[in-house]
Computed example of a mutant assay.
Amino acid sequence: MAQSLSDTIANIRQYAVEGREIQEEQMDLDASGTEARLEKTIRELQQRVDEQEAALAESNTDLNAIAFASEDPRKKLKQLLAVTTAYKNLTSTTPYLPNKNKKESVLPALLAARNIRQTVNGTKDAIASTEEKIKRTESQLRVEEANLQDAHAITKAMKNRIERLRTHQIDRSAKTPAQLAKELIQAKRAQQETYDAKIEELTGAMNDFLNDHLSAMIAAEELGGPVVGDMVDPGEGELAAGFTRTGKTKSTKKMPSDSKRQKTIDQIWGSGKTVGDDEPMTEAEAAHDELRTLIEDLFLTLTGPGGGKAYHQLERDSAASRFLVRAKIAQFHPKNAKQMRLIDFGRELDD
């Protein structure tokens, strides 16, 4: 056992010495004789091929016969034995290399060049693959960093919220029920005042919009003109002249008399409509008054005892009511088009 271990160590050392000598030996790559050496190597390889073909011819072996297994069991067994014997002989035989121990052959240089090129190509593929992986990793890293920042922000906000709630809870626990009730009433009053101011502001903006733009367009639709939005800001003269059956403005060269104009307003919006100093309303003013009154009635119905489910009874089918439905502000009763209500955006559209 000791002798076998000593022999193994000696072989390893001998292999290392030979490898170092081969590594230190300079390979002769003289370009002037490369072609001649290459031709010589090819001749040697061709000579070796010829020798193998001659040996095969002398053996009188039928290649077609041995290429396929015979149906006869005995012949098939002989074929398997021959193949096994040939395999064992070839595995124990050193591969043939022409002039492997001579510097004249260029085969070692060719094999080395092939290995170097394979190594270079493999390195290039590995570099490209690594660069792609680096890009994907960097992209994923940026996403993770963004997620981490969001998590930090959420954590900070939650901590601040918890701290405020804790402080609020401490303050509440230090106060009497009477003080808490008083503060709650004050907060509700302040909130109500804020809501009232906002309602007043929105109401003024709505009245301005109705007076400046929407009332004239609703009056035009009521008089037989285009629907709201198709004719922007019709003038008082166009409203006074009226519209044709096709919805186009009549000529303003011959304006109707005041009595005829007032009669038309009375027929559509009702008689007795006046503004300051008992002056008769214009078409736009009448439409403005009707729309504003309709919105107020719908709002009162929404906030009334019906709990948002009650409907307002319309006196007639008007351009104002149709506009509110088209604008998704109100909706008709599904079974009665003369009843409508405002849409409660805090609830479902359907009951």
Rank of each mutant, 00 (worst) to 15 (best):
K156N: 11
K156R: 11
K156E: 14
K156V: 06
A157T: 02
A157R: 07
A157M: 03
M158I: 10
M158K: 14
M158Y: 07
K159I: 13
K159C: 10
N160R: 05
R161D: 10
R161L: 13
R161M: 08
I162Y: 03
I162A: 09
I162H: 03
E163D: 15
E163Q: 12
R164P: 00
R164I: 03
R164M: 05
R164V: 04
L165D: 04
R166Q: 14
R166E: 14
Q169T: 06
Q169C: 04
I170L: 15
I170N: 14
D171W: 05
D171P: 00
S173E: 13
S173V: 06
A174C: 05
A174W: 02
P177R: 07
P177M: 06
P177F: 05
A178S: 12
A178T: 11
A178W: 04
A178C: 04
A178M: 10
A178Q: 13
K182C: 04
K182P: 00
E183R: 07
E183L: 11
E183N: 05
L184G: 00
I185R: 12
Q186Y: 01
A187N: 04
A187V: 01
K188S: 08
K188L: 10
R189W: 00
R189Y: 01
A190C: 00
Q192R: 12
Q192I: 07
Q192G: 08
Q192D: 12
Q192F: 12
Q192A: 15
E193R: 07
E193T: 06
T194K: 13
T194F: 13
T194V: 07
Y195V: 12
D196S: 07
D196R: 05
D196V: 03
D196T: 05
A197T: 09
K198T: 09
E200S: 10
E201I: 01
T203L: 10
G204V: 06
G204A: 15
A205F: 03
A205D: 11
A205I: 03
A205W: 01
A205G: 02
M206Y: 09
N207V: 00
D208K: 15
D208N: 15
D208V: 11
F209S: 12
F209W: 14
L210I: 09
L210S: 02
L210H: 01
N211V: 03
N211A: 13
N211D: 14
D212V: 03
A216W: 02
A216S: 15
M217S: 12
M217V: 00
M217C: 10
I218L: 14
I218Y: 02
A219H: 03
A220T: 05
E221D: 11
E222D: 06
E222T: 10
E222H: 04
E222G: 13
L223I: 06
L223R: 10
G224H: 11
G225H: 05
G225N: 06
G225C: 08
P226Q: 06
P226S: 07
